[in-house]
Amino acid sequence: MKKELSKYIPMIKMLAQTFGKSCEIVLHDLSQPQSSVVYTINNHVTGRQIGQPFDHLIKQVLLAKDFTDDYKANYLICTPDKREIKSSTVFLRDSTDKIIGAICINYDLSALRNIQNFCNDMLMIDTETIPSEIEPFDHVVEIVDDLIDKIISNTDVATLKRKDKIELIHFMEKKGVFLIKGSIDKVAEKMNISKVTVYSYLDEIKKMEN
């Protein structure tokens, strides 16, 4: 783990102890998007494991209407067993103002739902829907462009077989990269393939998923 990120671990431990076992905290290293999780505490909440990729940074954080000052608070995710999780995410910058990581707080609302009237403030969630493609603000484009760079730069695209290229496109599609207007052009350029090829891969992915 990078020293710049390890300095946040005492704060993460303090927050986890403050809010108890229902509070999971995950530290991401965004220089390695495909395996960004580098530290977790109370990971029984969602089962996040070190070495896993990010899940919600683009779809529910960067594309949220009220995303500002590098953070998004109180958005809703659900676990495979249908538990509601209230999540908040803040991006971390280095001394050069470059995004290097993120801290995600995931709070299991199961117990609090039983006393919802008493905990209305604690249970405030964002039900914003995400459009198929939007034209985001400049600061969002900067972060997503950086993620695209890191996702692709971690792979020697010149040596990839077709199925590997589809797998890489699929990873970016699942993470919401292509919700950003112009991202298909950028990915095509960086992978040295045509935009038409990216669209054909995405069509193939949709057929496989259906």
Rank of each mutant, 00 (worst) to 15 (best):
M1N: 12
K2S: 14
K3Q: 10
K3C: 01
K3N: 11
S6L: 08
S6C: 07
Y8I: 04
I9S: 08
I9E: 05
I12L: 03
M14N: 13
A16G: 12
A16I: 06
A16Y: 03
F19L: 14
G20E: 04
K21P: 03
K21M: 02
S22E: 14
C23Q: 15
C23R: 07
C23W: 03
I25E: 06
I25G: 05
I25Y: 01
I25M: 01
L27M: 12
H28G: 11
S31E: 14
S31L: 07
P33N: 08
V37D: 05
I41A: 00
N43I: 05
G47A: 02
G51I: 12
Q52T: 14
Q52N: 13
P53D: 05
P53M: 08
F54K: 03
D55M: 03
L57Y: 11
I58P: 15
Q60N: 15
Q60F: 14
Q60K: 15
L62K: 05
L63M: 10
L63W: 07
A64F: 00
A64H: 09
D66F: 01
D69T: 11
Y71M: 12
Y71N: 15
Y71R: 15
Y75S: 07
Y75N: 10
Y75H: 12
L76H: 05
I77K: 08
C78I: 11
C78T: 15
P80Y: 04
E84C: 08
I85F: 01
S87I: 03
I99Q: 08
I100T: 11
G101A: 02
A102Y: 05
Y107C: 03
L109K: 08
S110V: 02
S110F: 06
A111F: 06
L112Q: 13
R113N: 14
N117H: 13
N120S: 13
D121V: 07
M122C: 10
M122A: 14
E128Y: 07
I130C: 12
I130G: 10
P131M: 02
P131E: 09
E133F: 01
D138I: 09
H139M: 06
H139C: 02
V141Y: 09
E142D: 14
E142Y: 04
I143T: 15
V144K: 01
D146R: 06
L147A: 04
D149K: 06
I152F: 06
I152L: 12
T155G: 00
D156V: 09
V157C: 05
V157S: 06
L160V: 08
L160Q: 04
L168Q: 09
I169N: 02
M172V: 09
K174I: 08
K174R: 08
K175H: 15
K175G: 08
K175V: 03
V177E: 03
F178M: 00
F178S: 04
L179A: 07
K181L: 06
I184P: 00
K186L: 12
V187L: 03
A188I: 09
M191C: 10
N192P: 03
V196N: 06
Y199H: 13
Y199A: 03
S200Q: 12
Y201G: 04
D203H: 12
K206E: 15
K207P: 10
M208Y: 13
E209D: 14
N210Y: 09
